[in-house]
Structure formats: C-alpha cells, structure tokens
C-alpha cells in the first residue's frame, strides 16, 4: 500500500478545548477523501494539521512515511479564501512567482488553471481586483491559484459552501479532473452530494470529547 498520510492518536487542543481527537487516519496516494461531520467536529482542524499549518498537540502524523514537513507539495484552500490586494492575474500566479517562475510560464499556467475552474475568458478577468468579484468567482480564483502549482496533495475546506450552483459545478469538475493526474485530494464538506460527485471515500470525523 502506498500511504500518503498516516495518523495515530492525533490530538489538537486550543487551551483546555480539544478541537480534534482522531484515533486513526490512513490515506493512500492518489486517493480522494471527503471528510464529513458536524460543525466543530474537527474537519477544518484536521485539514490545517495535514497542511502542516499547525502542529498536533500530541500523536503522530506522517506524510509519505516521514514526519518532516513537505513544503510546497501540499496546498490548502481555506473555507473563506483570502485574495491579496492585487489583480486576479497576480493572485492566481502568486504561488508560481514565489517559486521563481518567469512571467511567460506564469501566463500559460494562468490560462490553464483559470480555464480548469470554469472561466471561459481568463484574459478579461486578469486585471480585475478582488473588490470586483463575486463570492463564487473568488472561490474559483483561489482554487485556480492552487491548481496552477500542480500540487501532490490538494486540501479543500468547504469549497462549495457560499457559492452559486454554477460555481459549485465548476469547482467539483476541476477537483474531479485531478484524479487521473494522481493528485491526492482531501475535502471537508457539509454538502451530502459532494462525496458522490467526487467519487470519493467518505470519512466521518467525530472528535471524542475529553
């Protein structure tokens, strides 16, 4: 078995509050997993741990058999994405420029990733600012800024909440298209249709009260 994430007795506490207690979690490379559970069950916390944005309070979390942080292989789309105070083009290509990619290659990546999230005319969007975008457009642009990086692992926190039906469809299509490319996906959601739409393994998160 080609294990991507492996966690044992994973616990994350904020002060006296236990946000997550996961006895066991195993995920294979290339797999698509959907995390379901009630509000406050720890889905977002687990995603933040998997993204190595935070460290667990106790327990073991391994990525590809190692406990070292895999910088730039994993990316997380936040539940309420943040767009920088700049143009759409700047936002989508930011990750590439952080990696030193030149503008021409970044432009090609911009076109591909914007088309992947359902924008039919990316050029017309390029110079728009965050204030000129709808919630669904922001969500898709934030997703495009992750897809452009060709990540090994894509983590999504409620990607279809607060978006219109057309944006939801575009987002799910984009995520589904990652499977043939071997990208591993972990998606937290309340939407009951998402596991089936992504043809994903569903894992219910129920943090045990301590």
């Amino acid at each position: 078995m080609n294990i991507l994430f492996e966690a044992h007795d994973l616990r994350k506490c904020y002060g006296s509050i236990t946000a997550l207690h996961l006895p066991s979690f195993v995920m294979e490379k290339g797999e698509t997993v959907v995390l379901t559970g009630r509000n406050g069950s720890g889905k977002s916390t687990l995603l933040r741990l998997l993204a190595f944005l935070e460290k667990p309070t106790s327990g073991v979390l391994r990525y590809a058999g190692s406990q070292t942080e895999p910088r730039r292989e994993i990316t997380l789309l936040l539940q309420e994405p943040y767009l920088m105070k700049a143009s759409v083009f700047w936002n989508v290509t930011l990750g590439l420029r952080l990696r030193g990619v030149d503008r021409k290659l970044a432009h090609n990546g911009y076109m591909e990733s914007m088309l992947a999230v359902g924008f039919t005319d990316p050029e017309s969007m390029a110079s728009r600012g965050p204030g000129e975008l709808s919630g669904g457009e922001k969500q898709r642009i934030a997703l495009a800024s992750r897809l452009i990086l060709s990540p090994s692992v894509l983590l999504l926190d409620e990607p279809t909440s607060n978006v219109d039906a057309a944006s939801e469809k575009a987002i799910l299509n984009a995520v589904r298209s990652l499977r043939p490319r071997g990208v591993s996906v972990v998606c937290a959601t309340h939407d009951r249709d998402v596991p089936a739409a992504l043809e994903a393994r569903e894992i219910g998160i129920v943090s045990e009260p301590v």
Partner: peptide, 12 residues
Amino acid sequence: RCRETLLTLGAS
C-alpha cells in the same frame, strides 16, 4: 488568512 494563504502557496 493572509499569512495562511501565503504559507499554503509555499512562501518562505
């Protein structure tokens, strides 16, 4: 979220 976004995009 600005900091988290930059980190998830791979900022040093």
